[in-house]
Design a protein around this nucleic acid. Sequence first.
RNA 1: UGUCCGAUAGUGUAACUGGCAACACGUCUGACUCUGAAUCAGAAGACUCCAGGUUCGAACCCUGGUCGGACAACCA
Length: 563
Amino acid sequence: MNQADPKPSLNFIEAIIEEDLRNNKNESRIHTRFPPEPNGYLHIGHAKSICLNFGLAEKYKGMCNLRFDDTNPTKEEEEYVESIIEDISWLGFDWEGRLFYASDYFDQLYEWAEKLISDGKAYVDELTSAEISEQRGTVTKAGEESPFRDRAVEENLELFRAMRDGKFKEGEKVLRAKIDMSSPNMHMRDPVIYRVLHESHQRTGDKWCVYPMYDFAHGQSDYFEGITHSICTLEFEIHRPLYDWFLDNLIDTKYRPRQIEFARLNISYTVMSKRKLLELVEEGLVNGWDDPRLPTISGLRRRGYTPEAIRNFADRVGVAKRDNVIDVALLEHSLREDLNVKAPRVMAVLNPLKVVITNYPEDKEEELPAENNPEDESMGSRMIPFSREIYIEKEDFMEDPPKKFFRLAPGKEVRLKNAYIINCESVVKNPDTGEITELHCTYDPETKSGMPNSAKKVKGTLHWVSAQHAIDAEVRLYDRLFLDEDPAGKKDGSDFKDYLNPDSLKILNNCKLEPDYAAAKAGDHFQFQRIGYFVVDTVDSVEGKPVFNRTVPLRDSWARKNK
RNA sequence: UGUCCGAUAGUGUAACUGGCAACACGUCUGACUCUGAAUCAGAAGACUCCAGGUUCGAACCCUGGUCGGACAACCA
């Protein structure tokens, strides 16, 4: 093996870029863009594309623009523009002021449409959309030409201007590129490039009543912005000949953008299409676009994901052209990896069971030191109150435990984290229901954490809170939204919503927390020791009364073994 | 029954472009542990879709097939 730096492997897009750089293509500029349509919220699939586009620009000392593809005023809204801007910024990317809209180019695009007409390469059609669809043919059968295909240039120009001037109703006339009705590629069969829409546009108002189609806007917008590598998902692959056709017929420069397609991200146990996400939101199956169970950026943020975790994840999933489904465990791994070093540790009891330490003085209380993060000494420590009555987790006690149960059971002893070793003496039950209501234990004062005699080994360590000091908190336990690995991929006719997990959200109202954390601020991350990572909800928390969302549970080899 | 794209451990991505199939996640062992977490050490797991061909040598090149995906909005 040569110890000289092993060539870092490139994904296929980086390979293309490096090849272009070697050939001094486009004067060795690298300029990408992220082009969302403002008709929905961004999801983690978009995050992959954002990381790719901005990441490439960064890696190759280029630039990356943000451009809203707003060519359809009937679907797009300002609310979406704002959320998209917020999400990209939150992920940590900067378009350095290069925020554009396809609508910025409507004048130029209109002129180019006239140019195409003048060159005899576009015509005004007056067939209905049903008729156009019918004569387009099928994937295996050539289409037929429209009777309006061979109008004179002057007539076309006149008609197109009349379209622009509002002389026609929607659907009455369209502008079509004159390409090839027998092309094996449906997109080349005289595609519609301009349509009449008597709709006010979020940005251009009532200036226009004709709007360009995606294909007539996208490549040209790339060209106007000097984009060199126009990266999009696989479904646009079949559009590429059209992308190139417009450039071939409209520009005459050495510089030219190139469209490159990669496979979109899919993740197990969720859905990743705007349409399906919209359906869940609109039908009230989740609580809005930022529901913590959704793979939207805003949902993940509210769930407690960090930008770093998402970016690391995006790096790890790779970039290629084959369809893929990423194991959600990889996402969760990236998250835990980041939170492990960042999140302060806290003791919180989700399902409290009272423990009375019978030999601990009734009026005594002490403050015990606890480190905030064993992974990072600089995060310091805090003092936590201890007293005669504490709460432990219900599931940390079993009356009749299996052999390898390292927790509390009658006659067994455990370490209370940061405190003493206790021994379980007796169990108090509700005489009517048989339910365990209380445990009576004794403690050994010599085993206090940090003391010389504290080194005694016990198998288990439990988290706990002092009953009289603990604060109550609401905790929301989020789980995966779907029970099936691939809810949208079924061929048996079932709907993705058939696989919704009925237990994707469990609300716990009687959780006990260390007293200091009443002051936790919205968005603060914590690790509830032995349980998982939690974040203070940004929507429903109120001053002094935080609501905690479970971001992700800790890995749990005990639970795994017992499955 | 058209065109385009794709196929490498369970999942995802590599393989210096023809030279010992590697990395990550996951799984399983073990060590350590005042978090059954983290960390550390190790293991299992791949006829590289199939069949031919070229070559000293093929995951990679060629031929043929199989399987999967995309495409017939006045959506993007």
